[in-house]
Amino acid sequence: MNETAPLMVRARGVVKNFGAVPVLRGVDLDVHAGEVTCVIGPSGSGKSTLLRCLNHLEKIDAGEIEIDGRLIGYRRHRGRLHELKESAIARRRAEIGMVFQGFNLFPHMTVLDNLVEAPIAVRGRSRADAERTAAELLARVGLTGREQAYPRQLSGGQQQRIAIARALAVEPKLMLFDEPTSALDPELVGEVLAVMRDLAASGMTMVVVTHEMSFAKQVADTVVLLDDGEVVESGPPQRVLVDPEQPRTRAFLSRVQVDR
């Protein structure tokens, strides 16, 4: 959409195999700063794996990924790639927030401790400072006053909103969402999508793997259809979702529409 903005994500020829099974077969992906990109596609198409490669939770087998102009997981020196140390990778990851399908909140910590853990450990903030930010974030996701609750005392939708707040607490430049509403009861999906809509409106760069076609249609700047580890089609949602060029996109969309 905003072609002049710098590239936040630049993936070229990303290949990932699980053993002998190819999951990604040379994926290119560009996400400009401030853009929302929705990755859609049938299950097993490699969407989640692509997302996990972007913050180096999965090591890629070929190709390269740059986040905000710097390689992720490696550094280039005299034309060769050198693996980074865990601590260096951890520092890079703090610039990339991630929201998981299963929330993955820390169940033994209160909501407040979940929110301040990373800012204190990674950003070196004081506890009082981190708690102030946590209160602001809770207000932003509509859960003011739930600081002392434990995650399992909250509904799925509330947990996922806390998980979004936790990822934002580290002040990332990029947010990754891995099917954030797939584990939720249908009536709880809306509250999570509303928070994500606000976030998109505030100018956050987002890559969202999702099955929510209406969300993709309304919020995304770019929709990418992944099938069998390849990008089949990508472009603005009006084109990809309404008037797709590729027969595989049409086939996928008709299946999703029938499922509804």
Binding site: L57, R91, G97, F100, N104, F106, E117, V122
Partner: peptide, 24 residues
């Protein structure tokens, strides 16, 4: 998923072990 969430937040391996994995 607990380890992955801690890694995604940028916690160091030692901190992940001490604060997230061991208490659970």
């Amino acid at each position: 998923g607990q380890t992955e969430a801690a890694q995604a937040l940028g916690l160091s391996p030692w901190r992940t072990f001490r604060r997230v994995v061991l208490p659970q």
